[in-house]
Structures are given as C-alpha cells and as structure tokens.
Amino acid sequence: MARAPYQVLIIPYIRKEDHKIMFALFRRSQEGYWQGIAGGGEEGESIIETAKREAFEEAGIQQDQKYIQLDSCSGLSVVSVVGEFMWGCDKYIIPEHCFGVEVDNQDLLISSEHKEYKWVCYEEAIEMLKWDSNKTAIWELNQRLLRENLK
C-alpha cells in the first residue's frame, strides 16, 4: 500500500488502583529520543484504523482497546517525516492526528523501531518527551482523564 499524507501519534495509558494515571513512552532505536507511538497512514485506511494498526505493530496493543481521539493535531514537515517530497513539490506539511489508548496491563511488546519503553507519570513524561506535539497531546490526554475522574 502507498503511504498516505498524514501521521498518527498514540499515547498508551493505564489507570492504577489508586486512580493514578501512567503513560507509556517509547525510546526510538536509532535517534534515541522518547515519544509516543508514531507512524504513517496507508492509502484507503481511516485515521483511527491507522492508529490501531500502528499501536498493534509497535506495542502489541489490541485493536479493541478504548481509544480517545484528541483535539491535538500538529503540522509536520514532509521532509522530517519521510525524508523527501513524497507527495509532490507542493505538499510541505502533513497533519499528525493524536490519540490516547487505555490498556489493560503494563506489559507491552516492543518493535524494532524502539529499544525500550517506560511507564511514567505526567510530570516525568513532559520532561522526557522531545517533540512539542507530543507534549501538547499528553497534556490534553492527561487533562481529559483527570476531568473524567472528577465526574
């Protein structure tokens, strides 16, 4: 399948018995920085289908888990994502759509794209994340989950 001109970012989370929320961050194998699960869409695939496929491929997260589509959506340069003007000379920026996914346990698989993952609280996640888009997405996800706990 051909690569579609968008990216997804997925942040796995788990609710602990004490109502504390923990987030899974992944360290990239080559670059060494921390981020959520990120990947590109394939033509004919919906954005949520892409998110579910990427989460399964990179962390073994089953597709029937609870996904939250976030309002966070960033623009990423085509060259920084795919290394070239893959979709023509006039396509400079592609959107990055963000999701949270609730998982049942902390045991995730790890693909060759990452060398490790770590469960952290929100404050530690903000310190570890490289990309501002990841920081914005995890802030939104954390706020949504905290407000949900208040209901």
Rank of each mutant, 00 (worst) to 15 (best):
D64L: 02
S112E: 15
H97Q: 10
F85Q: 11
W87G: 00
E58D: 14
I68H: 03
V101M: 01
V8T: 02
V120G: 07
C121H: 10
I93L: 07
K135E: 11
H114C: 11
Y6A: 05
A38F: 03
I68Y: 06
L76N: 13
I10A: 05
I47V: 15
L141E: 12
I94F: 00
V82T: 07
I126H: 11
V81D: 01
W34I: 04
E49G: 14
Y6K: 08
R15N: 10
W119Y: 07
I110A: 01
K130L: 15
I21E: 04
K52E: 09
Q143H: 14
A38P: 01
R53T: 03
H97D: 04
G32P: 10
G39C: 04
E148A: 15
A137G: 08
Y122R: 10
F99V: 02
Q65I: 00
S74V: 00
R28H: 13
K130S: 13
A38R: 13
I138A: 07
V8A: 01
Q143I: 07
W139R: 15
F85C: 03
G41Y: 06
Q30W: 06
Q106M: 13
Q62K: 12
A38L: 00
K115E: 15
E123S: 13
R144D: 07
R3N: 09
H114W: 13
G88F: 03
D104W: 01
Q63I: 07
K20C: 01
E43Q: 08
I21H: 05
I48A: 09
E124N: 11
Y6V: 02
L129W: 12
L141Q: 12
A137C: 04
E57I: 10
D64K: 05
M1Y: 04
N134W: 15
L70D: 05
E49D: 13
Q35D: 05
R28Y: 04
F99K: 05
Q62V: 06
A55I: 02
E57H: 10
G41D: 08
Q106L: 07
G32I: 01
G83L: 05
G60T: 09
M1E: 06
R28M: 02
L145I: 09
I47Y: 06
D64M: 00
I126N: 08
D104P: 00
V82N: 02
A137T: 12
E124F: 07
R15V: 05
F26Q: 02
V120M: 09
G36Q: 06
V81Y: 08
K20E: 05
L141P: 11
C98L: 04
A137D: 11
Q62E: 13
E57L: 14
E49V: 04
E102Q: 14
N134T: 12
V103N: 03
A4V: 07
E148I: 10
Q62F: 11
F85S: 07
I94S: 03
P12S: 09
H97V: 13
I110C: 12
E58R: 14
D132H: 14
Y13H: 14
L25S: 02
E45M: 14
E96C: 12
A59C: 03
A2S: 10
V78H: 00
R147K: 14
S74E: 11
G44W: 10
Y92P: 00
K118E: 15
L129P: 13
V101H: 01
I110F: 05
R27H: 03
W34N: 00
E113T: 04
L9E: 08
V8H: 01
V103F: 00
E43S: 06
S46N: 08
R144K: 15
D132N: 15
M1W: 02
N149T: 12
E124R: 14
Y67L: 02
A51E: 05
